[in-house]
Write a protein that binds this DNA or RNA. Structure first.
Lengths: 375, 375
DNA sequence: GTCGACATTGAATCTTACG
DNA sequence: ACGTAAGATTCAATGTCGA
C-alpha cells in the first residue's frame, strides 16, 4: 500500500479554484488578505497563529548564556480579550473560505490553545481530534520550576458535526507500520539544515518541522487540494504542499519572512515515496522506562529493600523512586555509583530485589512492565 | 504608647484545617458541597469534571460510546453556554476554597478541555503546565474515521501569575531516572485488578489509573496537605491520597460511586513515614553558608589559589572571603561571572581547589563544613 | 579525513532572601 | 515596597575546532 495517492485528473470546467491566487504569497494583514478570497474555495487551512507567550524578563541557562526568546511584536496582545477577538476574527474568515468538506488545523501551546479551541467550537467547527506533537528534543526548564514543556497541541476540525472531511486512514496506517495512527506524534524540533538561517541566526523564531506538515497534509488532504496558511512565516506549509503535489496560498505580513519563504519554496523538490518513508520512519527505539514508573504502577512498593548481587549494600525504595542507603539518597544509578565510589553505575543491573527467596536484578521487573504495557 | 493595651487573645490553636471534613466523602451536588467549605482551606484540587450536557440536564462523562448519543436537535450555542456556566461556577468555588499557595489540576479531553482551560485563565488562575497523559493501551478507533484518541490533557494552574506553588522538582527528576520530568506522561489505562467491577461490569466509566494521581500528588503536594476532589467518582484521589499520607475530601453525588469509593479507600494501605520519604523531604534546606565562613574557620587559607575546572582562570582567596584575579575582585559568584563575561555564575560549582593533586569544586568544602557543623 | 571534546541553541508565561 | 546579591539550574542535536 502506497502512502502517496495518485494525482486526480484535472476537471475541464472553470472552477472557483481557477480564480484563486494559487501557489503565491499574499503579503498583507492576515484578515484583510482572507477577505479578498472567495467563499468555500479552499480544501484545508493550516494555521500557526501567534501564541501570546507574554514572557517576562530574560532567561539564563545554567551556564549563564541567554535564551533567545520570542519577543516579536506580532506575538504581543494586551489582554485575553484582545487575543480572543483576533482569534475569532481570523477563524470566522477561515470558516467562510473553507469548502463545506474542508478542514482546519491550528497549532498552539497552553498559552493560547484553550482559547483557540473554544473559539473553534463556538464558531461551529466540529473538532475531530486534538493531536499532540511530542518534541523529541525540547528546550529544558532551566530553572527547575515546572515540568519540561515538551509538546505542542494541534486541533483538527471539520466544518460541522455532519460535515464530510478527508481522512486518509489507509495512508496513516501504512505510515505507522500497520498500526492505527495515534493522536500523539513524535518529531524533533526544526533544526539542522532544514532551519532557515541568515547571517548565522534563525530567520524565524518558530519555524515548524516539515515532517509535521507532511503528516498533516498526508492525513487530511488529497493531491491537487488547495491549502491555505494564514500565518505563513517562512513557508513550511508551501514547501511541503509543493513537494506533496498540493496547491497552496500563503498569507504573511512581514517582508523578510516572505522573501525567505519564496526562495525556499522555489528550491523545494517534489517528493517520492522512499524519501517520505525515511522522513516519517517510525521511531523504533524501545520505550524508555524509568525506575519510578515501576513504583508508580505498583510493581515495586515504597519500603522495599534492594541489595547488590553480593549483598554488600542494602537500600530502601522511596515513594518517588529514590533509594536510601546509610544516609545517602538518590536515583538507582546515582546511589549505585555513590556506594561503590565509582563515576557511574547501571542501577538496573546493580540493584536486586527478592522474589520467592531469590534475588533478581530490577531490570527483570522492567521487562515485565514493558511486556504488560506495550501493545 | 497607647493607654489601653490590647488584650493578647490566645487563639485556640484551632486551624481552618480542623474544621474541614477530612478524609470523608460529601454526598451532594458538587457546587453546593463546595459552598459549605471554608475559604483558603485546601492545598490542592484535582478535578475530573463531566464533559458535556444532555438536553435532559444530566452530565455525561467522556465515555466514547456516549459521545454520539447526544440529542441531535440541541442548539450548540446553548449547550456550550450551559457547560461554560457550570464550569465557571465550580471553578469559582474551587478558587475560593484553595489556599493562596495552592494549585489546581483538571483533566479532560478535546470535548471539554478547551472550554475548561479558557475558564481557568479567565478566572485568574495561572497555567503552569498542560500535561499529556499518553495512554499506553488506548481504545482503537474502530471505524477508522479519525486518529486513535490516545491521550487526555491535564491542566495544572496556580492561583495567579505571582502566586507560589508546590513543585517537588527533585522528586520528579529522581522518579524519571535523573532526567527532568517532561509534560507528556505515559501510563496504561485503568484495568486489571485495579479496575472496580460489580457483577462483572465496570462500576465507573472513566476510572482514572492510580499511577496518574500518584504522580500528580508527588509532584505538587506535600505529606499532610489537604486535597479536594469535587468529582470524586470511585475515589481514586482518596485512595492515592491515603497511600501517600495526604488528607482528602471527596464530593460525589451518586450513591453507588460513594459506596464503591468508601469500600476501596478503606482497603487502601497507607505508606509509613519512612516509605514516604522523597528527595524533596530529604533535601530540607541546609542553612546558608557564606564562602567567608570557610575561610574564617580554616577550611581554606587566605592566599589559596582557586581555578575553574579547565584552568582558564586562577584566583586568590582573600582574608575576607573575596577572590582576586587579574586585578578584578569580588565574591566567588561575582568574579566567576566577571571573568567569564556571563551575566551570572554559581561560584560554588565554578571554582575548584586542589586537594591531594585533584581539583574539586569548592562546593564539596561547603558540604564538609555543613556535615561538621550540623548536629 | 576522522574522531572526540567542546560550544551553541531551541515558542519559556523559569528564584529567593535579605536589607 | 523595591533593589541587590546569593544561589540553583539543562536535554538533545547540531556545529566547530583541534589533535
Amino acid at each position: 500500500m502506497a502512502v502517496l495517492e495518485k494525482v486526480a485528473v484535472q476537471p475541464a470546467a472553470k472552477t472557483v479554484q481557477d480564480t484563486l491566487p494559487l501557489d503565491t504569497i499574499l503579503m498583507d494583514d492576515c484578515i484583510d488578505a482572507m477577505r479578498s478570497l472567495p467563499a468555500k474555495s479552499v480544501d484545508m487551512i493550516f494555521a500557526d497563529p501567534p501564541y501570546n507567550l507574554q514572557l517576562g524578563g530574560d532567561l539564563l541557562r545554567p551556564d549563564g548564556s541567554q535564551v533567545d526568546a520570542v519577543d516579536d511584536d506580532w506575538d504581543k496582545f494586551d489582554t485575553f480579550a484582545a487575543y480572543d477577538k483576533f482569534t475569532r476574527d481570523w477563524l470566522a474568515e477561515a470558516r467562510r473560505i473553507l469548502k463545506d468538506n474542508g478542514s482546519i488545523w491550528v497549532i498552539g501551546s497552553y498559552h493560547n490553545i484553550f482559547r483557540v479551541g473554544t473559539a473553534v467550537q463556538d464558531l461551529g467547527f466540529w473538532i475531530l481530534n486534538d493531536i499532540i506533537w511530542r518534541k523529541a528534543n525540547p528546550m529544558p526548564n532551566f530553572r527547575g520550576t515546572r515540568f519540561t514543556n515538551a509538546h505542542e497541541t494541534l486541533i483538527w476540525a471539520s466544518m460541522g458535526e455532519k460535515a464530510k472531511y478527508t481522512f486518509n486512514y489507509r495512508s496513516m496506517k501504512t505510515l505507522n507500520d500497520e498500526l492505527q495512527m495515534r493522536s500523539d506524534w513524535e518529531f524533533p524540533i526544526c533544526g539542522g539544515p532544514e532551519r532557515l538561517k541568515k547571517d548565522g541566526t534563525k530567520v524565524h523564531p518558530t519555524q515548524k518541522p516539515e515532517a509535521l506538515l507532511y503528516r498533516v497534509m498526508l492525513a487530511a488532504s488529497k493531491p491537487g487540494d488547495v491549502i491555505l496558511d494564514p500565518f505563513f512565516g517562512t513557508g513550511t506549509t508551501g514547501a511541503v504542499a509543493k513537494r506533496l503535489g498540493r496547491r497552496w496560498i500563503g498569507i504573511e505580513r512581514e517582508s523578510k519572512y516572505v522573501a525567505a519563504a519564496r526562495e525556499r519554496i522555489q528550491a523545494a523538490l517534489p517528493l517520492d515515496e522512499s524519501q517520505l518513508r525515511t522522513m516519517q520512519a517510525n521511531t523504533k527505539k524501545p520505550p524508555r522506562v524509568a525506575f519510578g514508573q515501576l513504583v508508580e504502577n505498583g510493581y515495586l512498593a515504597p519500603g522495599t529493600v534492594l541489595a547488590d548481587a553480593r549483598h554488600r549494600w542494602q537500600a530502601v525504595v522511596g515513594a518517588d523512586g529514590s533509594l536510601t542507603c546509610e544516609g545517602q539518597a538518590g536515583s538507582i544509578h546515582k546511589l549505585g555509583s555513590l556506594v561503590q565510589e565509582r563515576e557511574s553505575c547501571n542501577g538496573w543491573t546493580f540493584w536486586h530485589y527478592e522474589v520467592d527467596g531469590a534475588w533478581k536484578p530490577i531490570d527483570t521487573l522492567r521487562q515485565t512492565y514493558l511486556l504488560a504495557t506495550q501493545p
